[in-house]
Structures are given as C-alpha cells and as structure tokens.
C-alpha cells in the first residue's frame, strides 16, 4: 500500500480512481482508454507537484519513511561491504554505519547514518541519530582509510546527533568536532551525499568533503524547521515559515556554494523509484571520485580546506 504525503492528495485521488477503473476493467468493462487518460493525468499532476515543492514539502519528502536510506545505497552500490564496529573507547553505535567495501571494483571506506525502516530497525539504528561512539568510530575508520590510501564516501541522513545524558557526558560535541577535524585532515578524496536529511552538526561531522552532492529534494540545515520555529518565532506552528526562511533546499545551497551539485530525483521523489535514484547517485559518486583521481594528498587536503574557507566569501 502506497502512502501519500498530505500535499499529494490530488495524485492520491487520481491513483485511487485508476485502481477502481482497473477493477472494473478486470470484470470486463471496456475502459482501457479512460485508464490511460487518467494515468497520464496522474503522471502530469505528480510532475507538476514535484517541480514546485515548497521547502516544507521537501522536508516531508526528505523524511519520507519509504525514501531509500543509507543501507539501501550500500546494498546496491557497494560489493563485499564489511561493516566494522566500535570506537575502541566505549561502545558501538549502529546509528552510524561504517565499513569498507568495493565501489565499482575499488576499495572504499563508507560512513553513513541509517534511520531504519521498521520499528525494530529504527530502534537498532536509533533513528539515525548518532552518539559520540558513532563519530569516534568514523574517526577511527577515516584514519585507517587515510593510512591505506582508500577514498571515503559519506551518506548523510540524520535529524541530528542524539541529545541524551550519556551522549553529553561522553562528549558529543567533542566527538563531532574531532570527526569534522578528521574529514579535513584526510589526504584521500572524500565525497559526501546528502541523501535525506542533513541535520546540523550531526551531519557536518561526516559531510566535510571535497565534493558534496545533494539529492534534489533533500534538506540540509543548521537546525530543524521545527526547532527554529520554537526558538526564533517562539511558536512551534511556524515550522513551514522557518523551512522557507532558513533556505534549506538543495537549490538554495547550490547557490550559496555549500554543495557542489544536485542529483535529480525520479518523478515523484526518490521513494517512488529507489532503484533509479540509487543508480543516479552511484554514477554521480563515480564521477566525483574520477574528477579527483591522481591528485596527491597535499592537493586533496588543500582543495578541501580552500573550498570550505571560500564558502560565504562570495555568493552568486
């Protein structure tokens, strides 16, 4: 059963009409033409809708439970994926998946937040909200990748780092700072893809990359629209306004020079055709790594530093 977001109501109505007509057609009525006509209409409506998503609608799409998550990309794009566990200091954090595998035949280090798809997996992955252990594991793997000259791929999808007593006591902020620091210190190329939600410090910790790609309807923000609404407007119902004013869409971020390119989503969003989205993403990742092939460690590091220093100095 397909689920619809509230703004998709016109499409949902057309789809249910198509289903009705199909049932009728199955019982012998000659209404094939009518079905095709309404199907075309539904496709057009979906295109129209998704070409004009508001920032708040994009927020809902970015968080769609059926949107392909980190592990969907890993399963489709990475062969011989071998997850590694633990930060060697305190524990293992499955919100942040980390390991080595092959991307198009070559070794790659993969880091990514996994939100989970079922109640059980969501709990296991803590809804994609990492604790300090997750970021310290990321640092450990990045150091390893650097030493073995293996490029790093980050798949970013988190509402933010986990806010909890233990996380604070064990230095959540320091763990994030060290992870960003580790990204900036890498002498190997790294590519980050914002596949869903890029939630603040929890995202930047693994998204400080030579190339930052972002899906067409993903969001990337310093604070969630809901939190911004209650802090800046002192009114939790202003999330839509906050989403618009904070400029969190891929289109805005490209203009600010915060991301390098936008990956177009299939009609109706990534969740309507995960396989197509993952294939597009795979090609873009390959392209990004290819562009940096042959660069030495110092050049890679310098390019990344300069790229971040330049952000905000000129805005087109």
């Amino acid at each position: 059963m397909r689920s619809y977001l509230d703004f998709e109501k016109p499409v949902a109505e057309l789809d249910s009409k198509i289903d009705e007509l199909r049932t009728l057609a199955a019982s012998g009525s000659d209404i094939g033409e009518e079905i095709v006509r309404i199907e075309d209409k539904a496709v057009a409506a979906l295109h129209e809708l998704y070409a004009n998503l508001t920032p708040w609608q994009k927020t809902q799409v970015a968080r769609h439970p059926q949107r392909p998550h980190c592990m969907n990309y890993v399963e489709a794009l990475i062969t011989e994926f071998t997850p590694l566990a633990g930060d060697r200091k305190f524990g293992e954090d499955e919100a942040l998946v980390a390991g080595f595998g092959r991307f198009r035949g070559e070794s790659v280090c993969v880091l990514g937040q996994e939100k989970g798809n079922t109640t059980e997996s969501r709990l296991k992955h803590n809804f994609g909200m990492a604790r300090p252990e997750g970021y310290r594991k990321a640092v450990r793997l990045m150091e390893m990748a650097d030493r073995f000259n293996i490029p790093v791929l980050s798949l970013v999808d988190t509402a933010g780092a986990y806010p909890g007593i233990g996380a604070e006591e064990r230095g959540q902020a320091e763990a994030i700072a060290r992870s960003t620091d580790a990204c900036l210190g890498l002498g190997v190329a790294n590519v980050a893809v914002i596949i869903g939600e890029g939630g603040s410090g929890g995202a930047i910790a693994i998204a400080t990359a030579n190339k930052v790609l972002m899906l067409e309807h993903a969001i990337y923000s310093v604070i969630s629209p809901e939190a911004a609404s209650s802090i800046l407007w002192r009114d939790s119902s202003k999330a839509q306004e906050a989403a618009t004013n904070m400029k969190i869409t891929a289109q805005d971020l490209l203009r600010f020079g915060v991301i390098d390119s936008i990956l177009k989503e299939p009609p109706g969003g990534a969740h309507r055709d995960p396989a197509a989205m993952i294939a597009i993403t795979g090609d873009a990742i390959a392209q990004a790594f290819n562009d940096m092939r042959g660069m030495d460690a110092a050049t890679i590091r310098q390019q990344r530093r300069q790229k971040f220093l330049d952000i905000g100095r000129k805005i087109g």
């Binding site: 923000s221 310093v222 911004a228 600010f256 905000g312």
Partner: peptide, 18 residues
C-alpha cells in the same frame, strides 16, 4: 550557531576547524 544565517552558520564549524 547564528540561526539567521542558516546553513552558512553551520559552515563555520568546518571553517574554524581549518
């Protein structure tokens, strides 16, 4: 972070780290 500068304030995390 200064929320009124949105993502550009978040970018000060890596920038200051450089």
């Amino acid at each position: 972070a200064r929320m009124q500068e949105g993502i550009l304030s978040l970018m000060q995390l890596p920038r200051t780290t450089v």
